[in-house]
Design a protein around this nucleic acid. Structure first.
Lengths: 135, 135
DNA sequence: CTTAATGCAAACCGTTTGCATAGAT
DNA sequence: ATCTATGCAAACGGTTTGCATTAAG
């Protein structure tokens, strides 16, 4: 995920965009809120305004580079778009996010949408619970 | 779902609470935003402030009478807590919400949480798509 | 009579936007 | 030189809250 991806997406290669992409690529936790990105950038010595972070993340989303999730709570969570789709396990105590894939569920979903006459465009499956370390 | 349920939940039986419960019980569409409830109440000749609607819906949620959903978009959607759990199909064009149940998926979810060492407290599965009439 | 519930208006918080300036090509 | 991206601060929309008033038990 580099500057080429930006150009390919029709986006000028600007410092904020490069830095944000860098954070998304390299941060330990790769499920981040806009604020998280803002804070991480600051910590790495870059000053990018929140407004720009929101704008850039939205552009990245539209360009298909990033996914936006609406987990519980107020703020959105962003992650680099993974090559293979996955769903999420979210710890309601510490907020940790884990990923999983389940083909059976994927297939059932397709079938459910189909049976209901829907053309499925997307889906969101989130399992909430208490993670090992929080129990 | 009546005044007894309110008492049982430890809530005083007030006019706003009774009316809101009534809307939730009788409205054709039973997936409603706070604004929807507000509007429906007005149409039925009752004047209840939005602040109260939010407070009451939150109390109902805590009392286990109501479920709150975070579908796409800004505002929350509320529905009377169904006796049997179900998930949702949401039309991204008209906003229509349909319900479904799939035991296979339910079982897989349990297993996934278990395998990850999570104690599952809840889950949310939303299929987004275009409904029959919007296609 | 006591305590909790309501309405109002202001606060809140995450997110978006208008506008003047800075930066990429 | 042109045109887009950025920062700032103000606006926004859904939701929450403090406080004085009203209603339930």
């Amino acid at each position: 995920m580099d500057n080429q991806d930006l150009r390919r997406a029709g986006l000028k290669v600007t410092l904020p965009r490069v830095k944000i992409l860098e954070i998304l690529t390299t941060a330990k936790e790769h499920h981040l809120s806009a604020e998280d990105v803002y804070r991480l950038l600051q910590e790495s010595g870059e000053e990018v305004s929140l407004a720009t972070i929101y704008r850039v993340l939205t552009q990245f989303e539209q360009a298909g580079l990033v996914e936006r999730h609406n987990f519980e709570g107020a703020h959105a969570i962003f992650e680099l778009k993974p090559e293979k789709h996955h769903d999420h396990l979210v710890c309601i105590y510490c907020g940790k996010v884990e990923e999983f894939v389940d083909d059976t569920i994927e297939r059932r979903q397709q079938k459910i949408a189909q049976d209901a006459g829907y053309r499925m465009t997307d889906h969101s499956l989130i399992i909430y619970g208490m993670c090992v370390s929080c129990q």
